[in-house]
């Protein structure tokens, strides 16, 4: 496992809200251009973990984080949150395109909202490129001026992925990206994750074991805020070392 190049590494990471410890001593390297799935029963801290990587938890009152999150050689927790978020994209459980913006503007949202001026040609390149990467181009190319909310749920989610990709992130975080979608749209997103990993490192939270098995290279199993097991996906599904992992994977709990 150590021959792979890690892009992000959590070292002794702890997270407390008020006096409750949500994440305990997490040590976890994420490898470049791989898909890592984070699994575990509800309330184990999966979403909290992925949100802290994007520094989105900071609005919560009385939150405290200790330890390190090394992005290349810098501690992500010490960096400016805005810069972190420009390097690390995030896609949420429910598709959330900006309802006031057109499809094209949704893709460009990261530039528009940050006040970056683009030439017409740059805009076209980014819109076309990002939509092509998410396989949405052929479906929406005639409707680029329409509102993002005009699309179906699955298309909206791919639009959100395109929006994140437009910023050329190093890492893409997916927080249960298919939990609000139908099986067909889910399949499309899974294919997409596979296609994307040659360019971007993907960390995803999922409740769906089949999904983790199908598309991830590594799997993390969290339980009550502790990292129980972290292995190559094939290994963890074939022969889990810990009984808790095994029980979860065989659906004895969770």
């Amino acid at each position: 496992m150590n021959d792979k190049k890690s892009i992000l590494e959590l070292k002794n990471f702890n997270l407390y809200i008020q006096d409750k410890q949500i994440l305990k001593e997490i040590n976890l390297p994420f490898y470049k251009n791989k898909v890592t799935a984070i699994m575990g029963p509800s309330g184990c801290g999966k979403t909290t973990l992925i949100r802290s990587i994007n520094r989105l938890n900071e609005g919560i009152p009385d939150i405290k984080m200790t330890g390190e999150m090394r992005l290349y050689n810098k501690d992500l927790l010490e960096m400016n949150a805005i810069l972190v978020r420009r390097k690390i994209g995030m896609v949420f459980q429910r598709p959330n395109p900006f309802p006031t913006m057109s499809i094209a503007d949704n893709v460009l949202a990261g530039f528009i909202l940050n006040g970056v001026r683009l030439t017409k040609q740059e805009k076209e390149e980014i819109v076309t490129g990002s939509l092509e990467k998410t396989g949405l181009w052929d479906e929406v190319k005639d409707n680029l001026h329409r509102k993002g909310t005009f699309l179906s749920g699955g298309q909206q989610q791919r639009l959100c992925i395109a929006r994140a990709l437009a910023m050329k992130p190093k890492i893409l975080l997916l927080d249960e990206p298919t939990s609000a979608l139908d099986p067909k749209a889910t399949e499309r997103i899974e294919e997409l994750v596979n296609e994307l990993k040659s360019n971007v490192t993907i960390i995803m939270v999922t409740h769906n074991m089949g999904q983790a098995e199908r598309i991830s290279d590594y799997t993390v199993f969290l339980y009550l805020g502790e990292l129980v097991e972290y292995e190559e996906t094939a290994t963890i599904f074939d022969s889990p070392k810990h009984s808790r992992t095994k029980d979860y994977l065989t659906r004895k709990f969770g």
Binding site: L56, R85, M90, L113, N114
Partner: peptide, 20 residues
């Protein structure tokens, strides 16, 4: 979720409020 979508794109808080 809209606010988070904007924050996650690296948009500062004040722009998120004003523009989203």
């Amino acid at each position: 979720s809209l606010k988070e979508a904007s924050l996650a794109l690296g948009v500062p808080y004040h722009s998120t409020i004003l523009k989203v």
